[in-house]
Structure formats: structure tokens, C-alpha cells
Amino acid sequence: MGRSTTTTTTKDAQALFHSLRTAYVATPTNLKIIDLYIVFAIVTALIQGVYMALVGSFPFNSFLSGVLSCVGTAVLAVCLRIQVNKENKEFKDLPPERAFADFVLCNLVLHLVIMNFLG
């Protein structure tokens, strides 16, 4: 009984992942690039978090700068993704070029602050 339940759950999960992957393949390439960028930023932030957990948080402002830089740019990338997604009808009047300009401007402002805080 238990074994069959576990097997069923595993199968269900596998089926779920499979359907997710097949659905994701259909995603436009530009959105995939943005997703990849977000993953890149989050993984970098995680590595810095591990580093801090290992050696302590002494230059705390530097740690914050590094992590917030990654998280901030990831958030901005999420926003960009929302805006350039063609499925999203809310922003259908907004050209993707305008969204990208916003993304670049926000990143520049964010990193000015980050640099100031880096110490």
C-alpha cells in the first residue's frame, strides 16, 4: 500500500515535471534568456550567502551590497520578463524596447547605490 503510494507520487511528480518541461520548451527564447539571467543572479547571491555563513559577516555592508545587487537585478529581470511576455495582456501596449530601456535605467540606478554602499 505504502510502496504503491510512493510509486504513484513519484510517477505523478515525474509526470508533472515532464509536462512542465514540455510546456516550457514552447516559451520564446528571449524569455528563456531572461529566466537564465534570473537563475544566474540568484545562484550568485546564494554563493555569497554561503560564504557569509562560513566566515562571518564582518564587512557586513559589502555582503549586503553583493547580495542586494544580485537580488535587485533578479527582481528587475522578473519585472522585465513580465513586461515583455506576449501572453501578458496587461502590457500589450508597451513595446519590449521601452521595457528594456526601463530595465537598463533601473539597473544603473541600483548599481550606483550598490557601489556607494560597497565601501
Binding site: 534568456i33 537564465l36 539571467y37 537563475v39 544566474f40 543572479a41 545562484v43 550568485t44 554563493i47 555569497q48 554561503v50 560564504y51
Partner: peptide
Amino acid sequence: FLGLVFLPLFGFLAGL
């Protein structure tokens, strides 16, 4: 860790 931080960047480029 400095080297480790560059890994996601390479991952990102490889992904591209």
C-alpha cells in the same frame, strides 16, 4: 569563493 562566484556567470554564458 571569488572563483566560485564566476561559475554562475559561465553557466549563464553556457546557457545562452
